[in-house]
């Protein structure tokens, strides 16, 4: 299996199936773990609704409040930068759209490749910055676990391998593409079992938060 084309086909075939399987299994389990636990009945007299405030928080929590922005500008700016970069690259790069279409049957217009390329480069720089920040900021350093570094490495390798493959810096291309897909597969496999879960559960968490505060009449 040292052959790049064999390697690519392995990653596009059996390994991808495996990754998707583990991912789907794990992620469904994670979400069910949350939903089945549910919430206890609340007998207090509500001041506001839950559904709309919940959904509102799902959206608004993406934007930091001015005080947080002032006190943690790095977190906010760099966090935004690389998250946005990652999402743009993931969802608006034509080959990714083709992949998603094959998996889910959904499709949408993509962005020009040079734009995605630039965004990817910015994402990589931002990711490096987050690592430096994690190592140097006393709070982040204190609360970081090995998992944080593992996840950082996976995300970085995922973006980096995509960048190298697109710019054809690693050759031959089947090897480069295979490496990128392999990174994506490892990413998918660990996703449900690490903090990467937040990609999906963040919506649930924010909703619960917004609903809880909203019930008490606070826009959270």
């Amino acid at each position: 299996m040292s052959d790049p084309m064999d390697f690519l086909l392995l990653t596009k075939g059996p390994l991808f199936n495996l990754a998707v399987t583990v991912f789907a299994l794990g992620m469904a389990a994670r979400i069910l773990e949350i939903l089945v636990n549910g919430r206890r009945p609340n007998y207090s007299e509500a001041r506001g609704g839950q559904w709309l405030p919940g959904l509102r928080t799902v959206l608004t929590r993406s934007v930091a409040d001015p005080g947080t922005f002032k006190r943690a500008p790095f977190n906010v700016v760099v966090g935004w930068l690389w998250h946005l970069g990652f999402i743009v690259t993931l969802l608006f790069f034509i080959p990714h759209i083709a992949l998603i279409k094959s998996l889910l049957g959904l499709s949408w217009p993509g962005l020009p490749n040079p734009v995605v390329d630039l965004v990817t480069a910015v994402t990589l720089v931002a990711l490096v910055a987050t690592l430096v920040h994690r190592r140097t900021h006393r709070v982040k350093r204190r609360i970081s676990t090995p998992e944080d570094y593992l996840v950082w490495t996976l995300v970085f390798l995922l973006v980096l391998s995509g960048y190298l493959a697109y710019n054809r810096i690693i050759n031959p291309y089947p090897l480069a593409l295979g490496l990128h897909i392999l990174c994506a597969e490892v990413f998918l496999i660990v996703l449900p079992f690490t903090k990467l879960t937040h990609i999906f559960t963040v919506f649930i968490a924010r909703w619960y938060n917004g609903a809880s505060f909203g019930r008490r009449g606070v826009e959270s």
Partner: peptide, 30 residues
């Protein structure tokens, strides 16, 4: 309960909560 599970599932160790806590901010102890 569900919210607790959702919250722990979602924490990314970003440390922003520290920036809202007077006990951390005024002691500087992480």
């Amino acid at each position: 309960d569900g919210p607790v599970a959702a919250f722990f599932s979602s924490c990314v160790h970003c440390g922003v909560c520290a920036q809202s806590c007077p006990f951390y901010l005024e002691t500087g102890d992480p």
